[in-house]
Amino acid sequence: MQPRRQPKETLCPHRIRRVERTSMGVVQKEKNSVNPLSGPMIQEQALIYAEQLNKPEFKASNGWLESFSKRNNLSFHKVSGESADVPQETVDSWTARLPHLIEGYSPRDIFNMDETGVFYRALPDKSYAAKGEDCKGGKKSKDRITAVLCTNMNGTEKLKAIVIGKAAKPRCFNNVNLNSLPVLWRNNKKAWMTTELFTDWLRDFDRKMRQQKRKVLMFIDNAPTHPPNAVRLTNTKLIFFPPKTTSKLQPLDQGIIAAMKKTYRKRLLRAVLSKAEDESLSANEIARTVNVLDACHWIGRSWNEVTAETITSCFRKAGFPTNAANEADEVNEDTELDRLVTATGRALVSLNFYVLRTLSMSTVKSRPMLV
């Protein structure tokens, strides 16, 4: 007869309660100070407190961390954006000044312009997979172009988007009338906004406002490529956001650019899915067949699909005063963005189905994928 095994000594719940309370205090402190807090950091800090509280038997295992997170309703998030670095007093001061800055201008005459990088071949970096199964992908595409977006406050006048690439006339533009594109094509060696491109665009914008006999405001950030006195303007007044505050104060950064990009990504996924049924290629290989002509069409169409309700809501979120009558008819921007995210997620599930099986054909057509 085998001797009875001695029960393993465990740490009673009430003995670890003080460790957990102290650890949760650290979590809250780091959250308020906007410092990233990882699981290993919580575990290490818990061990330190256990030692200080004379609890040497406490083990900050992965199982404890999981239970601790569930008990305290914690979840792991990716740190994104720069809004945490914007001083609230700067935001409050700007918001208080806004009514005076826009006094005398109607919403149709208040504009915001900004540039954003578009990785036009990049697929989502997250995927559904069976539990316990490795989820591996190929090298992420870093092919970038720049989209320049400009809209007025009530969303009734979205200017034609500008797309900036590296080549003056890419090979895929052969036999293509550039005037027929849904965007304006510009180029420089870094595919980014330059002072020359900005001043040319601003001069042309001011000329159109002069022809329409309109006096307008243009809100822009203080990027080096946006010099305040580079061009003489007659009908456009430039107003610059305070430095490093656009993540909270610029309307385009409150969801307008994100709405365009989500719709663009949905078009990219649809194009990959349409070829995945016919090509013996992986999703990343199909995505590499996307060219800047495809990207121009998709950016143009995606920009056109951003609704006036989304634009007005984002201006309001940035602190711009809006009429109560207009607000009653608006759709919350989150509803619009959630709809796009859901559609993209569904496309992603289908994408993985095709990527994980062997496909039949091997030829890749070079024509633009107009989706």
Rank of each mutant, 00 (worst) to 15 (best):
Q2R: 11
Q6Y: 11
Q6V: 15
K8P: 01
E9I: 15
L11Y: 10
C12T: 13
R15F: 12
T22Q: 06
K31N: 07
N32Q: 14
L37W: 03
S38G: 04
E44V: 08
A46V: 01
A46L: 01
I48D: 03
Q52K: 09
L53V: 02
N54A: 11
K55D: 06
P56I: 01
E57K: 01
E57M: 01
E57Y: 00
F58R: 01
F58C: 03
S61C: 03
G63C: 13
E66K: 15
F76W: 13
E82V: 08
E82H: 13
V86I: 08
E89I: 15
S93G: 06
S93T: 14
A96Y: 11
R97C: 13
L98M: 09
P99K: 08
L101F: 11
R108T: 08
R108G: 11
M113R: 03
D114I: 05
V118G: 03
A122P: 04
L123S: 04
P124I: 12
S141W: 01
D143I: 05
T146D: 04
C150V: 05
T156K: 07
A161Q: 06
V163Y: 02
G165T: 04
K169Q: 05
R171V: 15
N174R: 15
T194C: 06
F205N: 03
Q212P: 04
K213E: 12
K215Y: 09
K215P: 05
A223E: 02
H226E: 02
R232A: 14
L233F: 06
T234Q: 15
I239V: 12
K244A: 14
T245S: 15
P251W: 07
D253A: 13
G255C: 00
G255D: 00
K262F: 09
R265H: 10
R270I: 14
S280E: 11
N284E: 05
V290L: 00
N291H: 05
D294Y: 00
H297G: 00
G300S: 12
R301Y: 10
R301E: 09
S302T: 06
N304G: 13
A308F: 00
A308K: 00
T312F: 04
T312I: 04
S313R: 07
S313I: 02
G319S: 01
T322K: 07
A324R: 14
E327M: 09
D334A: 15
D334F: 14
T335C: 10
T344R: 08
T344N: 09
G345I: 01
Y354D: 04
V355W: 06
L356P: 03
M369V: 13
